[in-house]
Computed example of a mutant assay.
Amino acid sequence: MKAVVRYPIRLLLSDMDGTLLGPDHSLSPRTVEAVEALRAAGVFFSLATGRPPRAMRQQIEALGVDIPTAAFNGGTLVNPDGSYLVTHYIPREAAVITLELLSRHEEVEVWVFADNHWLLRNPHGTMVPREQHALGYAPTVVDDFTAYLDRIDKIVGASGNGQLLIDLESVLQPLVAEQALASRSQRSYLDITAMQANKGEALLTLAKYLGVPLEQTAAIGDGGNDPAMFHRAGLAIAMGQAEEVVKRQADVVTGSNSEDGAAQAIERFILVSR
């Protein structure tokens, strides 16, 4: 664990689900007020999430985010006007390997994000209603994913069997090494993205874009895809409900997302430092 940074933070990059959003995927008034206070203090604020760009619009508007945001775990950086600053697709070979492996397991629902759509073969999967509620739009049902193999932003293996996803992560990562990354964004989701599509690279790109030194950046999150930005940031903050392996890679731990932990962190570790 690094020593806690003692100088003012100029950029905060925040995860969304499990961090900025409560268990019901809503923004609390306290969180909105904390982000407003950040921006009033001259601190840049942005989002880094496994979600697709179209599933971030409501939160971007509610929080007044006016700088690029990172979707698909950093695979796509989106300008405030909706245009893309950076895009990374999963290489075709890695996509084929991933889809073949995940499809072997009946307990795993396989989702593909491409062409601004959420694609799946089985619309009746038990995880679908939860994801549709979180994203705010319905999936597109396809017979297979072949037509999209060259332009896939993200593949997700969704399952209520968390241990199975842990096992699949350990099996899959060596198979797609140097082409793609497999990480659990939440206990029920195994995300596969391009190698360059990680939140650490997103933070680096965003900091350079804004002219902010990395030592003056902070990152906050709760999932297995968040330590990538923890390792880049000057200050890394883990949510209270995060797994221990995530907490150990952060500088400090705040409250859970059911306790407005993100707002607590902003108030305690960032605004106070200014």
Rank of each mutant, 00 (worst) to 15 (best):
P8M: 12
E93K: 15
K2T: 07
V108A: 12
Y209T: 01
I237C: 03
L206V: 00
L13P: 00
A228H: 13
S14Y: 09
L21V: 00
A194Q: 09
L175F: 01
A95Q: 10
H133R: 15
F45N: 01
A95G: 05
R6M: 15
V252T: 04
T76F: 10
N79W: 13
L13D: 01
L85Q: 13
N116S: 12
R10G: 00
L77C: 08
V96Q: 13
E36A: 14
G64R: 14
S46M: 04
A242G: 11
H133T: 10
N79A: 15
T146P: 00
G224C: 08
G42Q: 06
A194K: 02
A263R: 05
A48I: 03
I266F: 00
E61G: 06
V4R: 05
S159I: 11
V253S: 06
S183C: 09
I9N: 01
Q163H: 14
R57S: 08
L119V: 05
L135K: 04
R274A: 07
N257P: 06
S46I: 05
Q132T: 15
G224Y: 09
I237V: 14
T87K: 15
A202L: 09
D15E: 08
D167L: 11
G22K: 11
F44N: 03
D251V: 03
A55H: 02
H133F: 10
A263K: 00
V78P: 01
N161Q: 14
A71I: 10
N116A: 13
S103F: 05
E61D: 14
G136C: 09
L175M: 15
V5L: 09
N225S: 10
A37H: 04
K154R: 14
H25E: 07
A194D: 14
G160W: 09
Y89K: 14
E215K: 09
L47W: 06
L210P: 02
A158T: 02
Q264S: 07
L164G: 00
R30S: 06
I67W: 06
A236R: 05
H105L: 02
G64F: 04
T126Q: 12
P174F: 05
A147R: 11
A182W: 03
D260Q: 04
P8I: 07
A70K: 08
P139D: 10
T126M: 10
E178D: 15
G221S: 07
S183G: 07
D153V: 02
F113C: 02
T19N: 07
P29D: 09
N198W: 04
L175H: 03
G75Y: 11
D153F: 09
N116E: 15
V35D: 02
D24E: 11
A180I: 10
L12A: 04
M16G: 04
A242V: 06
S170R: 14
K247V: 06
M229D: 03
P123G: 08
S170D: 13
I60M: 15
E169K: 07
Q264I: 07
V112L: 06
A138S: 15
L38D: 03
L119H: 03
L47Q: 08
T205S: 13
E106A: 14
M195D: 09
R187A: 13
L135Q: 08
L11P: 01
A228F: 08
A263P: 01
Q196W: 07
G160M: 10
L101C: 07
P129H: 10
F45L: 06
L12N: 00
A236T: 05
A228V: 00
R121K: 15
Q249T: 01
L190E: 05
M1A: 08
W111L: 10
T49Y: 12
G240P: 06
